[in-house]
Design a protein around this nucleic acid. Structure first.
Lengths: 160, 160
DNA sequence: CCGAATTGGTAACATATGTTACTAATTTGA
DNA sequence: TCAAATTAGTAACATATGTTACCAATTCGG
């Protein structure tokens, strides 16, 4: 497939201008925002907030995890996770059990009700993903996913 | 280039499981978060916040705009923009001029100092973009940009 | 024209999120 | 073995962000 987008190479001397519409980081963040807002519809009806959904999702796929693991797997700091867990526990969606040999950590798991909520939201989320990704050809989609991985790794790299 | 990622098609009957690492919307949002944090370094030293930078960027490329235009071009609501503009004006980076025939709107433009700040940040931002995108081959990068556009358009669509 | 809806922008309030500091449990290492 | 450093998690505080309501200026419809 031919692509209309102009490849912009770094020309050492030429001062490029910052044009938002062509500035990849901006476009990435903008897409993230749009996607995030769209996903929010899936759990708004369940009275679940964004951080809560993230916690649900991590616990949902791993059955039992510590809060610190949720922190590692999501873009949230530990306070946000702590609050979301407390709220989910309050609502009866998440249960805590003591870790057998480290009494600092609680192991988190879903209650049956929490599992139900998770399943409902997950179904909607997967539908959305299908709808979203259907705008790309299969090879395009695969390439996009691969690019996402590479870029994220690079973006997270600590070097200057 | 061969791609390891499995293409996941919607099989009407088979309940797929939600696996975060393979869930495209999650990966997109995560990349956005990483990119955003990385960009923040570029303006942290200038004592510029994220909303302020976005406002600077929009004004910087359009010379004179109304606040409502900033709202249209960025993922911020009008209150956030209003505050950022007020702060930038406070700092002497942005100037307001009355719109000639609509007295509700102020036209925003950069002061010389604001222009300088914008240029410094823009240079760092463009360097970051180069560094980030250099992880992709030119064709990959072009395809990625195209995919971003398609996906954003789809994600913003109001239906379903 | 002119009253009713609309729009640009802000204020005041509520909520959400990040930061710092702290407690309790555990690990480290001299 | 035990004081010092590390880790999991939370509390208390500050700040940032979203929501609602509002004012002033403008446009719309009759």
């Amino acid at each position: 497939m031919t692509v209309a987008c102009v490849s912009r190479k770094a020309k050492p001397g030429a001062k490029r201008k910052l044009v938002l519409d062509q500035f990849a980081p901006y476009r990435i963040v903008a897409l993230g925002h749009a996607v995030s807002g769209r996903l929010a519809r899936a759990y708004r009806d369940e009275n679940i907030t964004i951080p809560e959904w993230r916690v649900l999702a991590v616990i949902g796929e791993a059955s039992a995890v510590a809060a610190r693991d949720v922190v590692k797997r999501t873009p949230m700091d530990k306070m946000t996770v702590s609050r979301a867990v407390a709220s989910l526990e309050q609502k009866g969606f998440v249960k805590r059990a003591p870790h057998k040999d480290d009494r600092r950590v609680s192991m988190l798991s879903l209650s049956q009700e929490g599992r139900d909520v998770f399943d409902r939201i997950a179904a909607l989320a997967l539908d959305f993903e299908d709808d979203l990704m259907s705008t790309l050809e299969p090879e395009e989609a695969a390439a996009f996913r691969l690019a996402l991985e590479k870029l994220e790794e690079r973006a997270k790299a600590e070097d200057a």
